[in-house]
């Protein structure tokens, strides 16, 4: 589904990603872990198409096509979703309105008619219930006045409504108490399917107690220096990143 090959990317004059390669197949959950400043969030932003990053070499192929020339909204229409580490508050833009506009923009791109109003309402009510969100959140401005945990929950709620093919969750676990973490994880688990892939960017192993990954990667110095299965996450939790970094330096 997603193939990243030897990706180099700059933020301003600084090279952040230095030859990153990664392949994700449909149905898989990948976790990217790594120390602060290793390039985790840059990877998430480059995949979502944020301005301010320059890809200097390498390629990103998504469902067989070159992802990099596409605008952020085009990537969304093709099924990519970014869950933000710091969700933005947008006063005056209603949550429900945003989701309806987002769904309809994608449907328009695929030549489909606008979503039926009753059907849409049913979807958002169901998903809000799943995310244990009060219905009143639906009619509030996007993230305005939400607590940190509510904002993250809202991100996963949006993902649940938009049903992406590839969901990139950038530190969705940070700042969550254990109850909120369980709700967020349950939301992700409910969406797992053979057609859908997840890229979880996280600093802590904690999230992976609730969302079991198929693959775990360590990102350091702008490259993936070690990959393994879920046991790698436990080793990192127990022993920290130093041994992986040393091992990579020695290799």
């Amino acid at each position: 589904m997603l193939k990243i090959d030897n990706l180099h990317a700059n933020a301003g004059d600084t090279e952040i990603l230095k030859g990153l390669s990664l392949a994700i197949d449909a149905g898989e959950v990948h976790a990217i872990m790594g120390p602060n400043g290793s390039g985790k969030s840059t990877l998430a932003h480059v995949l979502a198409g944020r301005d301010g990053y320059e890809v200097t070499s390498g390629s990103v192929t998504y469902q067989g096509t070159d992802l990099l020339p596409l605008a952020p909204e085009e990537r969304a229409w093709h099924g990519i979703f970014l869950g933000f580490q710091y969700p933005i508050e947008i006063p005056g833009v209603n949550n429900t309105y945003l989701l309806k506009a987002a769904l309809n923009a994608r449907r328009k791109f695929h030549g489909e008619p606008e979503i039926d109003a009753a059907q849409f309402l049913r979807i958002i009510k169901d998903k809000a219930r799943m995310m244990k969100m009060d219905q009143s959140f639906l009619n509030r401005s996007v993230n305005e006045g939400f607590s940190g945990g509510e904002k993250k929950r809202n991100e996963v709620f949006q993902m649940a409504v938009l049903e992406p093919q590839l969901a990139i969750l950038d530190e969705t676990d940070s700042g969550l108490d254990i109850d909120a973490l369980k709700v967020v994880a349950a939301g992700v688990n409910a969406l797992r399917s053979k057609d859908r892939a997840f890229l979880l960017v996280t600093h802590y192993q904690r999230l992976l107690d609730y969302i079991e990954p198929d693959h775990v990667h360590v990102l350091a110095g702008g490259r993936i220096i070690k990959s393994g299965d879920k046991t790698l996450a436990h080793e990192l939790e127990a022993q920290g990143y130093d041994w992986v970094l040393r091992e990579a330096a020695g290799a």
Partner: peptide, 14 residues
């Protein structure tokens, strides 16, 4: 700019 990107990442044209 952050708000514009947030909306675009959800699929809203610029």
């Amino acid at each position: 700019a952050n708000s514009i990107f947030y909306l675009r990442a959800r699929g809203i044209p610029e």
